[in-house]
């Protein structure tokens, strides 16, 4: 324990935890989007994010300013996500869950290798659109980058929420997630809704990647740990609950940061195992997570 407990220090840990948590939340939401529609956890989500983040880096390396590169990357990510669903998942969508999981693992391996093959294994610096300075709010120094990260991630989450809530397409996508058979009867092209879900998930992943990269640096393996936190957040919130994923992500970001800062045993190295232990504990007590629906299994 630090000798004296300082509120400003504590608040700083919380805010930086929220920034990290917003990144976990984005990726967790991506996982939930795919889980809701395809009923499978996409193990390649992190590698898809890494790959697109490298694309953004390439644009900027060629001289494109940050935000155009950002937007262009999101477009590519969207197309990529749709493509992955159409080409890889669609042909096997009626096979057992384990087969689809293995497909995403195949994609994980291939994308991870491809990223390293194209851009090399060296760690690269990635620009942040936000200055590396801090503002003082109520005696607490908060990093501008943290605020920016938080706002971008949460802003996208809110946009997505508005989309699902108020547009026809969003409604149809929700309908497909809940009841694909009935959606077909309504004239919905279910296959395309699934592909759109993968597209949005890829966009969320790309944002998480681009927001994480300035802090954790760009390398082919950079999203693996983030993916684990996102998994934990999604499971914590309930793997079928978008709200749960966001709350779970933020909660996890803050808790992990505080544990790392204030519990000596945990320190820097054991954050991940601690997150894992917390996750297992939650699952044992509440298998459906904090916001999850109870699953009724068919015989």
């Amino acid at each position: 324990m630090p000798l004296a407990f300082a509120w400003s220090d504590f608040a700083q840990q919380v805010t930086s935890g929220l920034a990290a948590g917003a990144i976990y939340a984005s990726l967790a939401l991506a996982l939930v989007l795919i889980y809701q529609t395809t009923n499978v956890v996409n193990f390649a989500q992190g590698e898809m994010a890494t790959f697109t983040t490298f694309i953004a880096w390439m644009f900027m390396d060629r001289g494109l300013p940050y935000w155009p590169a950002f937007a262009l990357t999101l477009l590519i990510a969207f197309a990529g996500g749709v493509g992955v669903e159409r080409v890889l998942i669609r042909p096997i969508e009626h096979r057992p869950e384990i087969v689809i999981v293995i497909m995403t693992i195949g994609l994980l391996i291939a994308l991870n290798g491809l990223t390293g093959w194209i851009w090399g294994p060296e760690v690269k610096a990635f620009d942040s659109p936000f200055p590396n300075s801090s503002v003082i709010v109520g005696g607490v120094a908060i990093s501008v980058r943290d605020i920016g990260t938080f706002c971008v991630c949460l802003g996208v989450v809110v946009l997505l929420w508005l989309f699902f809530r108020f547009t026809t397409l969003g409604l149809a996508m929700r309908a497909v997630a809940f009841n694909p058979d009935a959606s077909r009867l309504m004239g919905v092209r279910v296959g395309w809704m699934l592909a759109l879900g993968w597209g949005f998930a890829a966009v969320l992943g790309a944002i998480a990647g681009m927001m994480a990269a300035p802090t954790i640096f760009l390398d082919p393996d950079m999203m693996i740990v983030v993916l684990i936190y996102a998994f934990a957040a999604a499971v914590l919130g309930g793997i079928d609950s978008p709200v749960g994923a966001v709350v779970g992500g933020l909660l996890l970001g803050v808790v992990i940061n505080l544990l790392g800062a204030y519990v000596n045993f945990v320190g820097n190295e054991l954050r991940l195992p601690t997150a894992l232990a917390v996750l297992l504990l939650v699952l044992v007590i509440r298998p459906t997570g904090l916001f999850g629906r109870r699953v009724v299994r068919r015989v």
């Binding site: 409604l171 809940f178 309504m186 919905v188």
Partner: peptide
Amino acid sequence: RGLFAELSVWENLRMGAYV
């Protein structure tokens, strides 16, 4: 019936109009 049990009455009707 094939309703969307998780959606509201109004949203179910909206889905009817989708086509």
